[in-house]
Design a binder for these strands. Structure first.
Length: 884
RNA sequence: GGGCGAUUGGCGCAGCGGGAGCGCAGGUGCCUUACAAGCACAAGGUCACAGGUUCAAAUCCUGUAUCGCCCACCA
């Protein structure tokens, strides 16, 4: 039996037909809306995965969050649309295709630009759909009928317009700048795409001879981590306040090895405390040196080619790589007696985020976006809460990022991407950004050439929320569906992507791109470190779905979402979620097995049990709505789990068994109530566990509101509010306490669950007596006891154990079965615990400060608690006395 | 160097001013006609440390320690 269960299903398998049914019925396309929200739209754009991508845990979590939001919105009656698409991913794709060509024995340079781009499209056709299929596997309700792509003709048109408009508005300019150059990818890399890696290096102290000795000083010593760059030195900097070097300012140095005469100059950038206080300055190969060079009018000498190999004109150094040149330069200095000394020095080096090659600061011609005019508004809309971050503390991180933002290098020396629409006439010098390709110069008629660079991938992704919605050709499509409602993403691309979307959207649409930004925690491996191939600590969501179903994975992931920045992946949560899905299925099976004579009808809270579960349900919906407002997915899943399992299954279903068996009118009422609670719970669970809930919904008897649960309505908290019932909750509290107490007694004395026990009951007052009387059948059945007597004046029988619950004492008759020393020990332990509580509350309630300052309802509550404790203590004491 | 987060039972985490909770693991007893991927019961914590605010602190403030992340990048 158990073995059958395990082979019964690969969870994932039965999910697929349901997905196809949704898809075929058009459920994923934009919905028309209904009810009070029907006229409003709710749109999400998916962060476009790279076409090179495979579904990883980050996607799994992020897509679950979005699907949960959009599914709930759909059920709430909004006109929903979740826009799907992929990113062409410049460097990532080019790297893959390069590799493929290499395997085929050719290369990009060999086949040329046009053929290479075709190869990229071919690659996309073959592999680029993988991730979309995987997203489908998760059950995501994206609009698959209208998939977007950042390199489609329409999208390219939008990108081109952005470039041209910004260029003509003076926001895009060309400049010679130091950029982070990857000598392996042979392209510029944005600052934020570079990764720093700590490296154990050295500080070399080099002697630089003065052209003419000054006051007997023949040389200065400079400290450097990169001796090879001395070939491009065009100055030596000192701090103007540094007394040691004051009289050297303005003098010159005869640069060794290259015999270049370079000036000693003053700049406040120099820290006199570090090294020797003299800084060799290489404007073409260091960003700070570049800045100093600008201020002090130094030459810029580029010593490396695009592969970071020393260029012609440097004798034996020409043709050497960076590392070879370093070794050779140091050796030469040593030979010349100019190597002062060497120290160990740890520092960090920039590496390419794609290929991890050390980046070279390299002077080259690049295109930039001037951000000053854009960033102010982008800060404003977050500052004033027009765009909200969840959790809220990310607001400050966003603002800080904008604050420190520098001009953005957007040109990349790649082939795969949006080619920069700049056209140049070499004949007359004309140049412009053009919306349409041109062959000849509009000014002189000579042939023109187009810029060969392409745009940074983020330049196109920044348009994602509006370029996917018809901009700029059909701005009216933006009406009503723009701004979008939710943007969910990982924190690492908050600046790179989120801020840039805000900037470009405000400029081009005059609107914010989205109202809420969800920054979800980063999924770390179980060891707390980032998941990575090299560490081998990663987890594959596809395998997780095989093991736990998409439902199990989704629920299990959301259970782990908190306000923290990271989430240490915990597979056991997925296991409990899979078990939870199973529990839901089984509970539904129980309900349906008992519906053979079912007559549909309105729910009717006839008994205290009904009133209780309806009340709990009403509070659940209210509380879920509140948690959804703050996008608190951990809270949402925990509440659903607790309600369904611990209240509905553990108690309501158990309480309903005797009623169903009894037959008659109460059976009919109970059936309807079970169906009602189950149906409502399925709706609440559906956005997170779409498959199980849909499957059960399909099997439920009776008329359906909609063909699919996916399109059904979200339970209305206001309509349910009338079921809130404190009294019923208290009354069922008495039942559960009593039953648990009886079971506990049974377990304590090792009495088999099969043995029927006898009890007598002493209610404290009329009300308790009435409640108990009403519930006695249930209590008798769940506790497996026979109730001999209920009366306010019963005495505790000899040889019995007592169960204390609110307002009632239940005496379990144990004559002959039990060691009463154990019972005494138990009562004494309980007394001890309560005695501590009593003292705590007595102290609190005799504290003048508390009485005068605390809120009256708190004082009342605590008084009641104390009274309760004292009462219970007294009752326990009585039991002890009777044990003798 | 600047900023942010974490520190709660064996493990992973909730709670974030008013009597310490969940999941997993472990213990005991149950194949109770929805479910052994289950049910019942029990056990397990001076909420990192030190000060402070408050009638009241796991919860707020300050500092310390440990771990982690982001940003900057002093040659």
């Amino acid at each position: 039996m158990a073995a059958d269960k395990k082979t019964e299903q690969s969870y994932h398998e039965w999910e697929e037909p349901l997905f196809n049914a949704w898809k075929e019925s058009g459920c994923f396309e934009r919905t028309p809306g209904f009810g009070k929200n029907g006229s409003q739209t709710y749109t999400i754009v998916i962060p476009p995965p790279n076409i090179t991508g495979m579904l990883h845990m980050g996607h799994a979590l992020n897509d679950t969050i979005q699907d949960t939001c959009i599914r709930r919105a759909r059920m709430q009656g909004y006109q929903t649309r979740w826009i799907l698409g992929t990113d062409h991913a410049g460097i990532a794709t080019q790297t893959k295709v390069d590799k493929k060509l290499a395997e085929e024995g050719t290369s990009r340079l060999e086949i040329g630009r046009e053929a290479f781009i075709k190869a990229c499209y071919d690659w996309r056709a073959e592999y680029g759909t993988t991730i979309v299929n995987q997203i489908m596997g998760m059950g995501c309700s994206c609009d698959y009928s209208d998939e977007k792509f950042t390199l489609s003709p329409e999208y390219a048109h939008a990108v081109r317009k952005v470039f041209c408009d910004w260029y003509h508005d003076g926001l895009i300019y060309r400049g010679k700048r130091i950029v982070n150059w990857c000598p392996s990818c042979t392209t510029a890399i944005a600052d934020d795409e570079a990764e720093y890696v700590d490296e154990k290096g050295h500080l070399w102290y080099l002697r630089y001879p003065l052209t003419e000795p000054v006051d007997g000083i023949e040389y200065v010593v400079v400290a450097t981590t990169r001796p090879e760059t001395m070939l491009g030195d065009t100055g030596v900097a000192v701090n103007p306040k540094d007394e040691r070097y004051k009289n050297l300012i303005g003098k010159t140095i005869k640069l060794p090895l290259v015999n270049r005469e370079i000036p000693i100059f003053a700049d406040y950038y120099v820290d006199s405390e570090f090294g020797t206080g003299c800084v060799k300055t290489t404007p073409a190969h260091d960003p700070n040196d570049y800045a100093m060079g600008q201020r002090n009018d130094l030459d810029q000498i580029n010593i490396f080619d695009e592969h970071a190999v020393v260029v012609e004109g440097y004798g034996k150094f020409s043709g050497m790589t960076r590392d070879e040149a370093r070794e050779a330069v140091v050796a030469e200095f040593e030979a010349l007696g100019l190597l002062d000394h060497v120290e160990d020095h740890d520092h960090s080096v920039m590496t390419c985020y794609r290929c991890h090659t050390k980046l070279e600061p390299w002077l080259s011609e690049q295109w930039f976006v001037a951000v000053d005019r854009l960033k102010e508004k982008a800060a404003q809309v977050v500052e004033d809460g027009t765009i909200q971050f969840h959790p809220a503390r990310w607001k400050q991180v966003y603002l800080d990022w904008l604050e420190n933002l520098k001009d953005w290098c957007i040109s990349r020396q790649l082939w795969w991407g949006h080619r920069i629409p700049m056209f140049y006439c070499d004949t007359c010098g004309w140049e412009d950004a053009c919306m349409e390709d041109i062959d000849v110069c509009p000014k002189c008629g000579a042939p023109v050439r187009q810029d060969t660079d392409v745009l940074d991938t983020w330049f196109s992704s920044q348009l994602w929320p509006f370029a996917t919605q018809g901009w700029p050709e059909a701005p009216e499509q933006l009406d009503g569906t723009y701004p979008t409602q939710v943007l969910s993403t990982a924190r690492d691309i908050m600046g790179l992507w989120v801020a840039r979307m805000v900037m470009s959207s405000l400029y081009f649409t005059n609107e914010i791109p989205f109202e809420h930004v969800i920054i979800h925690p980063t999924v770390m491996a179980a060891d707390g470190k980032p998941m990575s191939k090299s560490r081998g600590n990663g987890v594959d969501p596809l395998k997780l779905m095989e093991a736990y179903g998409a439902d199990g994975m989704r629920f299990g992931l959301l259970l782990q979402v908190t306000g923290a920045q990271d989430l240490k992946f915990n597979e056991s949560k997925l296991e409990s979620s899979r078990n939870f899905a199973n529990k839901i299925r089984n509970a539904a099976r129980f309900v349906m097995l008992n519906l053979d004579d079912y007559v549909p009808g309105d729910p009717q809270p006839a008994t205290l049990a009904d009133q209780w579960i309806f009340s709990r349900l009403a509070r659940l919906v209210e509380s879920l709505d509140k948690a959804y407002e703050g996008f608190e997915f951990g809270e949402i899943t925990r509440e659903l789990y607790a309600f369904f399992w611990n209240e509905f299954c553990d108690w309501y279903i158990e309480l309903s068994k005797p009623r169903l068996n009894a037959g008659g009118q109460d059976r009919a009422i109970c059936q309807r109530n079970l169906v009602f609670v189950l149906n409502t719970a399925l709706r609440l669970l559906h956005p997170i566990m779409p498959f199980v809930t849909e499957q059960i919904y399909q099997e439920l008897p009776g008329e359906k509101e909609t063909e699919f649960l996916m399109m059904a309505s979200w339970p209305d908290a206001e309509a349910l509010a009338m079921y809130k019932n404190d009294e019923a909750e208290r009354a069922i509290g008495l039942v559960t306490q009593t039953v648990s107490g009886i079971r506990s007694t049974r377990a304590r004395y090792g009495l088999s669950p099969k043995v029927e026990l006898n009890v007598v009951v002493k209610p404290e007052n009329e009300q308790a007596a009435a409640v108990f009387a009403e519930q006695q059948t249930l209590i008798a059945s769940l506790g497996k006891v026979t109730i001999d007597q209920i009366a306010q004046d019963v005495q505790k029988p000899q040889e019995s154990s007592v169960v204390l619950s609110d307002g009632v004492e239940v005496y379990v008759l144990l004559s002959g079965l039990v060691d009463f020393e154990a019972e005494r020990a138990r009562l004494e332990k309980q007394c001890k615990t309560l005695e501590k509580d009593r003292m705590k509350f007595e102290k609190k309630l005799s504290n003048q400060g508390f009485l005068s300052k605390a809120a009256p309802e708190i004082i009342e509550k605590d008084r009641a608690k104390l009274a309760d404790i004292v009462d219970t203590l007294q009752r326990l004491q009585d039991q002890l006395d009777q044990l003798g």
